[in-house]
Each structure stands twice: as structure tokens, then as C-alpha cells.
């Protein structure tokens, strides 16, 4: 039994420590907010210019001037602040955000990330992803371990154009948790999802990682 999307999000939420400022990407990373532990105080950043993102509004609270980076209507909290895009990315690029949790198409064994373009397909742009992985203190990827064709996404070297070099610290997939300490270290299997064996991970992983 590998992990579901929600279980992967719940596992990623464990990486968020009390007092953290966090940026959650679009897709599965958004679900992480639902799993933040009790007693953990976290401030969510939205790169379009807000700290302290609140929940979705009630119908009579909807405000067109208040959206998140996924362009969804949201609300403010007592702690919230608004700022311009340059200040927002000063927080991100300047290393003031503690953790970024984002999706990926491919991750390489040296921590390269590819998640913004597929050559030959319509390219929509990288948005804030390149800034996030370049600047945020700790970057955690949530992705399926293999693509729809069953091919590994955790590779020796990314074949798709990179979003960032040597920037990913942890990879959470439906099969387990893979982490490294420091930019020079190898990824190591840290946890396996229930019922997942080391052999299955070996078979579905191209990256040279430590199984110890």
C-alpha cells in the first residue's frame, strides 16, 4: 500500500516546525495546510504578496482584491500583511522563508529540480518556482515516484529543462521519504510507505541513493 496524495501531504506537513514561514506550491502541496500539527504555528506566504494566508472566504466575504498565488479567493488573518511583488521575492530569494513544498516532474540525485517545461509542449512559464528553489532555506518535493508510463522520476540527471540546480533537500513520493543533509550529500531512504519494499523502490528509482 503506497501513500495517497493526501498521505503524502500529511507526511510533508511533518516537516513544518513551530514558528515557520512556509510557501506551499499549487497542487498536492496545497493539501499540506490541512495536515499541520496541533500546536504548530505556521505563517503561510503567498508569493503574489501576502503573509498569513487565511482559509477560503464565506460566500459573502469574497473579495476580488484578495487572492492567493493559485488565483483562488482567500481571507486574511490577524497576523496577515500585504506587500508588493519585489518585497515578496526579497523574502523568498533572501532566504527568509523557512520551507517551500512544491511539485516536480523530475528530481535528480544531486538535487536538481525540473518542474516547469516540457520541450515541444506549450510552455506556460515558471512563475515563482525558480526563485523559490533558489532562495528558500529548505525545499521539499512531493511527487509520484514514477510517471504515468511507469518510468522513474527520481533520476541520475534530469532530462527536462531545470527549474533549479542542487536545490532539493527532501523528496516525498507515494513510496517513501528520501532526504539528504547538505548539498554535497547523497539522498538516503528515510522512510518507506506501508507495504513498500526496498526492492520496489530500487526497481522504480534511477537515482543513485543510499538504502542504508
Amino acid at each position: 500500500m503506497s501513500w495517497t496524495r493526501d498521505e503524502m501531504a500529511a507526511r510533508a506537513a511533518q516537516e513544518i516546525e513551530d514558528g515557520f514561514y512556509a510557501n506551499l506550491g499549487i497542487g498536492i502541496p496545497t493539501l499540506v495546510a490541512n495536515h499541520i500539527g496541533e500546536g504548530i504555528d505556521v505563517t503561510l506566504q503567498s508569493e503574489n504578496g501576502m503573509l498569513g494566508m487565511g482559509p477560503f472566504p464565506y460566500e459573502d466575504e469574497v473579495d476580488a482584491d484578495l487572492i492567493n498565488a493559485g488565483k483562488q479567493t482567500i481571507t486574511e488573518l490577524r497576523r496577515s500583511s500585504y506587500f508588493n511583488s519585489a518585497d515578496s521575492f526579497a523574502m523568498i530569494r533572501g532566504g527568509h522563508i523557512d520551507i517551500s513544498i512544491l511539485g516536480a516532474m523530475q528530481v535528480s540525485e544531486n538535487g536538481d529540480l525540473a518542474n516547469w517545461m516540457i520541450p515541444g509542449k506549450m510552455v506556460k512559464g515558471m512563475g515563482g518556482a525558480m526563485d523559490l528553489v533558489a532562495g528558500v532555506k529548505r525545499c521539499v518535493v512531493i511527487m509520484d515516484h514514477t510517471n504515468r508510463a511507469g518510468a522513474p522520476k527520481f533520476l541520475k540527471k534530469c532530462t527536462l529543462p531545470l527549474t533549479g540546480q542542487n536545490c532539493i533537500d527532501m523528496v516525498i513520493t507515494n513510496l517513501g521519504v528520501f532526504a539528504r543533509e547538505g548539498e554535497q550529500r547523497r539522498f538516503r531512504v528515510r522512510e518507506l510507505a506501508p507495504g513498500v519494499t526496498v526492492d520496489e523502490v530500487r526497481e522504480k528509482t534511477e537515482a543513485d541513493i543510499s538504502y542504508e
Binding site: S88, A134, G135, Q165
Partner: peptide
């Protein structure tokens, strides 16, 4: 990149012709 775009505009308006960033290296 979104942050590079924001900073390029800020820099332009502030009379700064160029700057260095790690984004996209």
C-alpha cells in the same frame, strides 16, 4: 522568473541597470 521580473522592474525604476541573482543559475 516572477521574482526576477519584479526585481528587474524595481531596478529599472530605481536607476539600476543590472543586478546579480541566484535565481535560474
Amino acid at each position: 522568473p516572477q521574482g526576477t521580473l519584479a526585481e528587474r522592474i524595481r531596478a529599472g525604476g530605481a536607476g539600476i541597470p543590472g543586478f546579480y541573482t541566484k535565481t535560474g543559475f
